[in-house]
Amino acid sequence: MATPYEIQSSTNQTKLTVRGSLDINTAPALAEEIDRIIAAKPGKVDVDLTSLDLIDSSGVAALVKLYKGIRAAGGAVAISGARDQPLAIFKLLRMDKVFNL
C-alpha cells in the first residue's frame, strides 16, 4: 500500500500532505509520524488534504492528535483542501469550524 502522506520540514514549519485514504489501516503509521512532528515543536504545521479521498474516525483521530499536540506546544495548525467525503465527515463531527475548513 502506498504511503498516504508526505512530510516536508523546514526550520520552523512542517507541511503534511495526506492523500488517498486515511483510515484505520493507514492512520497508525501517520500517528507515529505525528508523534515525531509534535516532538519537534514546529511553530506552524500546514496540513494539505487536497488529495485525500476518504477518511474514517481513525483518520480524524490522527489529525485531532496533531492539532491538539501542536496547539498545546504553542504552535499553529492550518488545515486546508478538505473536499467531498472527508469534508462531509469534518462537518458532521462539527470540526469544520474548529479547523476553519
Partner: peptide
Amino acid sequence: PLPDELDEHSLPEGGMGIHI
C-alpha cells in the same frame, strides 16, 4: 455522545465511529 460544544480543547480523539 459527542460534546455539545466543540472547541480545540474538547476535540474528541475517539468514540466518533458510531456517531458517524
